[in-house]
Design a protein around this nucleic acid. Structure first.
Lengths: 192, 192
DNA sequence: GAACAAAAGCAAAATGCTTTGCTATAGTGA
DNA sequence: TCACTATAGCAAAGCATTTTGCTTTTGTTC
């Protein structure tokens, strides 16, 4: 994991950023090894080669840190499929999502993000991102004159079930993704 | 919360059960007050009027305890709607689910359950319960000669999006529930 | 009702997380 | 380059959680 995110900070370059990256990397490694539940700040600090105090002062708690890293990891943007039809695009996209979020670290990050979420927060960066992606594919398809589902339908009937399944420990494979897309396309095709 | 669950234990009556109930109640109160994140075993023990050691020896960690209480709270069975049509049943059922899981304690429990879930677990008691409920309503409707969605479709296109929305902090109100049911019924109506 | 066994209570010790005051380091702007 | 400031490092103290060995209570069985 290299220096990729440009968090607006007073001192974006230099040591601050180095420490942050080292900490992010350490958290990533621990999550990868299945230590999401029992992660502690001293642990992360040691692995990052950083003083625990620095983490305490910057993030306050392991949950806040984990939440931040999770969001960062889950919102890196990937290339969108462009197959020439909305059906093909959605199918490819859904499969990529399924494959992505079923990877153990990703699942762990998702759970961390959910766990960190407090009642007051009412929007979710990774959901916003999926929404934008859906909009884009639909936009393109409409310009080609295709009949398409709405982005709300795509989010509700394709993305939500995938995330739900993963988060609750149910199967979310390519077949499931395909079925979701098929249903959603059927919804769109029906006369309004 | 009274003595309702009959966990198969060597000594089902008596002190063991009393301690368990007191602990469950204490956890419930703390969750209700928004202390899911910062709950500790000594805290729960004091509120339950129980020795911390007892909790350590029985549950091991606060996460294990929270997970257990969450599952217990989320799988108490409610009466199913019986309106005479699958459309009415599903609409009523979806609204009840939405209203139920958007209550703050319920949302907290859901998140606790998700957080407690490890990769190896591949089924979810509260999902199983929803599945059984859906099957029952569909069964009844089919005996009346109605065209119905499959239970898989209901779970995927009604229940999953509701849970997803709640868990990720998005809105899940009666309107959303209605829209989900409408879409699912439309799917069922379409010629195969 | 007496013996047995399982679980709870108790208290002290140990462990490890967290805080705090201070110093050192390193970016930023003149 | 120099002053300034934000952040990191350090070390010690404080504190809460967790463990442990033992005793007590209480349900179960004969």
């Amino acid at each position: 994991m290299a220096t990729s995110r440009t968090v607006r900070a007073r001192r974006p370059g230099g040591r601050s950023a180095l420490v942050r990256d080292a900490v992010y990397t350490a958290v990533g490694q621990l999550v990868g090894q299945g230590h999401r539940e029992d992660m502690t700040i001293p642990q992360v600090a040691e692995r990052a080669g950083v003083n625990p105090t620095s983490i305490y002062r910057r993030w306050g708690s392991i949950d806040a840190l984990l939440g931040e890293v999770a969001v960062a990891a889950l919102t890196r943007d990937e290339p969108l499929p462009d197959t020439g039809s909305i059906a093909g695009d959605l199918r490819a996209w859904a499969r990529v999502i399924a494959a992505d979020i079923t990877r153990p670290e990703r699942t762990a990050y998702l759970r961390a993000m959910i766990s960190a979420r407090t009642g007051s927060v009412d929007h979710c960066p990774c959901w916003d991102q999926r929404s934008e992606q859906a909009e884009l594919m639909i936009q393109r398809a409409r310009e080609r004159g295709e009949v398409t589902p709405t982005s709300a339908q795509v989010l509700t009937h394709v993305v939500a079930p995938l995330y739900h399944h993963v988060v609750f420990g149910l199967a979310a494979d390519a077949d499931y993704a395909d079925a979701l897309v098929a249903d959603t396309l059927a919804l769109a095709a029906r006369p309004h």
